[in-house]
């Protein structure tokens, strides 16, 4: 692949590099730093990319290696930045779904790193189990089991939060709102005709 073609394809992947980096870092500024470094590293390594293979998986592998190899760097995942939380709330037309997204982010934070990454790549990034296994350097079966454990854990974390709400005096307004909106949402959801 010539440089021009490589550059074009790499540029098209920037949004995905940013999204994957954001899921690893949790902080938008640190994530963009990481995504930029990964992009430049991919550019420098372009000679070793084999045309016809999956460029997205290849660049994700570079980004992930960068993230895990430089443990001291500031882009290590931190607790959700209050500014990010606020921006999510403000930028969202639907406050109940914004709060739900934040709950999900917090639940993701509670997962072990390997499970979180597998769930994000497969469940959010739309990568196949095979591509994800390639990126994470492990067997497909391992990825399948991580994704399934992650899904189960996320469901349990979110549910335990919901059930913890009842009979709790220190229930925050946001939590109460979330609880009510979620219930309303479930009730109003289109039910299958045979239900």
């Amino acid at each position: 692949m010539d440089d021009q073609a490589f550059k074009t394809e790499l540029a098209e992947l920037i949004p995905h590099l940013r999204a994957f980096a954001r899921s690893l870092c949790g902080n938008a500024t640190a994530a963009d730093d990481l995504a930029q470094e990964a992009m430049l590293k991919a550019w420098k390594a372009r000679a070793s990319y084999q045309a016809g293979t999956n460029l997205k998986a290849w660049t994700f592998t570079i980004l992930r290696n960068l993230f895990y190899s430089e443990k001291r760097r500031s882009w290590r995942r931190q607790q959700l930045d209050p500014e990010v939380a606020e921006a999510t709330l403000v930028s969202n037309d639907n406050p109940s779904s914004a709060i739900e997204l934040l709950s999900l982010r917090n639940a993701l934070d509670e997962l072990p790193e390997d499970q979180r990454e597998a769930l994000i790549l497969v469940g959010a990034g739309g990568l196949s189990y095979e591509e994800t296994a390639e990126i994470c350097g492990c067997a497909i079966g391992t990825i399948k089991s991580r994704v399934s454990r992650a899904r189960k854990a996320i469901t349990e974390i979110l549910e335990s939060k919901m059930s913890g709400l009842t009979g709790n005096d220190s229930l925050s307004a946001a939590d109460a709102f979330e609880d009510i909106m979620r219930q309303a949402d479930e009730l109003s959801r289109d039910l299958p005709a045979d239900a």
């Binding site: 949004p15 940013r18 899921s23 997204l101 769930l119 994000i120 739309g126």
Partner: peptide
């Protein structure tokens, strides 16, 4: 929601700095 977390980022305009 998981897809939204990811898509919200891919839908953002790419900062000029990258290009």
């Amino acid at each position: 929601q998981l897809r939204r977390l990811y898509d919200d980022v891919t839908n953002e305009p790419v900062p000029d700095e990258f290009l």
